[in-house]
């Protein structure tokens, strides 16, 4: 894949009179591990929504896997979206389904409605689900009810779902904000390992800067909808990070 995975050209997003992103341009190439950092409200989630095709820009061009999502039919857009897996801060799992169904939800883009119904009664693809769960380290939870799991375990289920979906790129929206510090390290390490092993691109938004340094190779600093820096992790200085957060405070 020589084309960039994502390409943004002078993208602006407005919600009413509020500008969430302004004139953002960037590219993400296959195999990169990118961290989005910045204070709350900087536009990280908006950017991720653009990248998974659930939000259209107010101005500028977005290309996802080489396609312009605003010009695609609903069906074609879905085909692109299937190549982009997202992991959320709040997991976005169905609490009263058993784990296997939440993992199997990763297949849904390829399954017919009838097959999806059947699987709710007799779970299909048990092997791939079991393998994905083994990959995220909770192989024994296949038939547990999802809401009986701890926060860290639920995030692993969400990651397993993305593994089953088998996308080209994984987006992670603050994946460790809802789990304790020990679990955070494990989850981040897991994400990095899985991306290495299955050759996935990773874009992750983070509040914990240390993981951006330790687990990613590129950092994009966002503040009030603007890209403040976009550098290899090694070139980002503590001063730049401090500025990213401090200036925001001064403004408020």
């Amino acid at each position: 894949m020589t084309d960039p995975i994502f390409e943004l050209h002078k993208v602006t997003v407005r919600y009413g009179s509020f500008t969430a992103l302004s004139e953002v341009s960037l590219q993400v190439k296959a195999g990169e591990r990118v961290a989005l950092i910045g204070p709350s409200g900087a536009g990280k989630s908006t950017l991720l929504s653009l990248l998974n095709g659930s939000l259209a820009p107010s101005e500028g061009q977005v290309r996802l896997l080489g396609e312009d999502p605003t010009r695609l039919s609903v069906r074609a857009l879905r085909r692109i979206q299937r190549q982009i897996g997202t992991v959320y801060q709040q997991f976005h799992l169905v609490p009263n389904l058993s784990v296997i169904h939440n993992v199997n939800a990763g297949h849904l883009g390829r399954w017919s409605l009838a097959r999806a119904m059947l699987s709710l009664i007799v779970p299909l693809e048990r092997q791939s689900a079991a393998r994905a769960l083994a990959d995220v380290g909770i192989a024994d939870k296949l038939y547990a009810r999802t809401d009986t799991l701890s926060g860290g375990q639920q995030q692993r289920v969400a990651i397993a779902r993305v593994l089953v979906q088998d996308p080209v790129v994984i987006l992670a929206d603050e994946p460790i904000s809802s789990v304790d510090p020990e679990r955070s390290r494990e989850i981040m390490t897991l994400l990095r390992e899985l991306c290495d092993r299955f050759n996935k691109t990773l874009v992750v938004s983070l509040h914990a800067i240390e993981y951006a340094y330790s687990h990613c190779e590129r950092m994009i600093g966002l503040r009030a909808g603007h890209v403040m820096f976009d550098l290899p992790a090694g070139q980002v200085t503590p001063g730049m990070v401090e500025a990213l957060y401090r200036i925001r405070k001064a403004e408020a």
């Binding site: 058993s98 007799v122 038939y143």
Partner: peptide
């Protein structure tokens, strides 16, 4: 737990 869950849906 799963089993009865599954049966619920079957039902």
């Amino acid at each position: 737990m799963f089993r009865s869950q599954q049966k619920t849906r079957l039902a």
